[in-house]
Amino acid sequence: MVSSKEIVSALPDLCGVYLIKDSTGNIIYIGKSNSIKKRISTHFRTKLADKIASVDYILTESELSALILEASLIKKYKPKYNVSMRDDKQYPFVMLTMSEDFPMLTISRKVDDEKSVYFGPYKSLTARMLIKVVSKIFGLRSCANFKKRAQPCLNYYIKRCSAPCIDNISKKEYWINVKKAIDFLSHGPEQLLKELKSEMDKASRNMDFERAAKLRDNIHSIEKMISRFENRYTKQKRKDLESLNELQKIFSLKKTPKRIEAIDISNIGKDNTVGSLVVFLDGAPYKNNYRRFKIRTAKLPNDVAAIYEVVTRRYSGSLKDKFPFPDILLIDGGTAQLNSAMQA
């Protein structure tokens, strides 16, 4: 059997997507990183370590391409340990409504229209940023109720729509952009930029300098938007990581916390008390694991007894085996509530 050191040493210190396989050759986890080598090295310090038999990878030229490819592969293979993005309504899809004359680009939390094309799932912020970038590049509409207008909406003036509503673009031209957008969302920006640069070189050789200049400006604009997207995406990831690292120091943890749970009690009237469990995964709300507990054993209202019941039901009841144990558990309240949770 190949050792962890041998696996890591064979991997590149480059941006891309990696596919972790078990001893039977099944893909059990798919991820992305600016450094595949460093990320896999980190995985060997987690609970996934003893399940890693081999690692395949696909290099990409940008983090945006890695992001798009990762979502596509997770959707295709449905790896066992990609629990945070599998069958979870928290993570939306980018959707193109292909049944319309001028397809709409929007966010959807359900895959329920056979005539539409879906990309993802992504985290909400990522999905919104992708739609902004794709709308800017290809001019696809995002309005829910398409109809002919005398004047275009704001999106046209801020260059996020080509305004088919005022016949500013033909159906044929619009569908050319739709197909390019599908390719962009399926494979990333590299192929699009390659084609545009090839067209620019061809126009220059044919001495069509006006077209070459226009293509050059388009290329620069796309590269600028992609850079802006990646900077914002990286900034958000860095902010989340810094917060988690700070929590690691505060609680003197051996590793950066991945799963955080918090429990709170709400009293509605004298006889109606509810306990709430909220969960954060990698710094982001993980609503699929949120739970509500109707307090039934305590003499109400009694927050201390209610905390004891919720903690017991979460960590000793049916949820014990269903959910992993958190790295950090937060109890809302004072010393009495904390002591009650520790006794449960």
Score class of each variant (00 low, 15 high):
Met1Thr: 11
Val2Leu: 15
Leu11Ser: 06
Asp13Lys: 10
Tyr18Ser: 03
Leu19Gly: 00
Gly31Glu: 01
Ser33Gly: 10
Ile36Trp: 06
Ile36Glu: 03
Lys37Gly: 06
Lys37Ala: 07
Arg39Trp: 08
Ser41His: 07
Thr42Ser: 14
Arg45Asn: 15
Thr46Asn: 02
Ala49Phe: 00
Ile52Val: 02
Ala53Leu: 04
Ala53Asn: 06
Val55Gln: 03
Tyr57Gly: 01
Ile58Tyr: 02
Thr60Gln: 01
Ser62Met: 03
Leu67Asp: 00
Leu73Val: 07
Ile74Pro: 03
Tyr77Ala: 05
Tyr81Arg: 00
Arg86Tyr: 09
Asp87Thr: 04
Asp88Cys: 14
Lys89Asp: 14
Lys89Cys: 08
Gln90Asp: 15
Pro92Glu: 04
Met95Trp: 03
Leu96Glu: 03
Ser99Asn: 13
Met104Val: 15
Leu105Gln: 05
Ser108Arg: 15
Ser108Asn: 11
Val111Trp: 06
Asp112Met: 13
Val117Asn: 04
Ser124Asp: 08
Arg128Glu: 11
Arg128Phe: 12
Met129Gly: 14
Lys132Val: 09
Val133Thr: 12
Val133Asn: 02
Val134Gln: 02
Val134Phe: 02
Ser135His: 07
Ile137Ala: 10
Phe138Glu: 01
Leu140Asn: 02
Ser142Leu: 06
Phe146Gln: 09
Lys147Met: 12
Lys148Trp: 09
Lys148Arg: 10
Lys148Ile: 15
Cys153Asp: 07
Tyr157Asp: 08
Tyr157Ser: 13
Cys165Thr: 01
Ile166Cys: 05
Asp167Ala: 13
Ile169Leu: 08
Trp175Gly: 04
Ile176Gln: 10
Ile182Glu: 01
Asp183Cys: 08
Gly188Ser: 01
Pro189His: 00
Leu192Trp: 00
Leu192Val: 02
Lys197Thr: 13
Ser198Gly: 08
Ser204Glu: 08
Met207Gln: 14
Ala212Phe: 07
Ala213Arg: 12
Leu215Arg: 04
Arg216Thr: 10
Asp217Phe: 15
Asn218Glu: 14
Asn218Val: 09
Asn218Gln: 15
His220Tyr: 14
Met225Ile: 11
Met225Thr: 10
Asn231Thr: 09
Arg232Tyr: 07
Arg238Asp: 11
Ser243Glu: 15
Asn245Cys: 14
Gln248Ser: 13
Ile250Ala: 10
Ile250Arg: 13
Phe251Gly: 12
Phe251Ala: 13
Leu253Cys: 08
Leu253Lys: 05
Leu253Ala: 09
Thr256Phe: 00
Arg259Asn: 05
Ala262Lys: 12
Asp264Ser: 14
Asn267Thr: 10
Thr273Ser: 15
Val274Pro: 02
Val274Asn: 04
Ser276Met: 12
Ser276Ile: 07
Val278Gln: 04
Gly283Pro: 03
Gly283Arg: 06
Pro285Lys: 09
Asn288Pro: 00
Arg291Asp: 07
Arg292Cys: 11
Phe293Lys: 09
Lys299Glu: 12
Asn302Tyr: 07
Asp303Phe: 08
Tyr308Ser: 10
Tyr308Pro: 00
Tyr308Val: 02
Tyr308Cys: 05
Glu309His: 09
Val310Asp: 07
Val311Met: 12
Val311His: 05
Arg313Phe: 04
Ser316Arg: 15
Ser318Asp: 10
Phe323Tyr: 11
Pro324His: 01
Pro324Ser: 08
Pro324Asn: 04
Phe325Cys: 02
Ala336Pro: 04
Gln337Pro: 03
Ala341Val: 01
Gln343Trp: 03
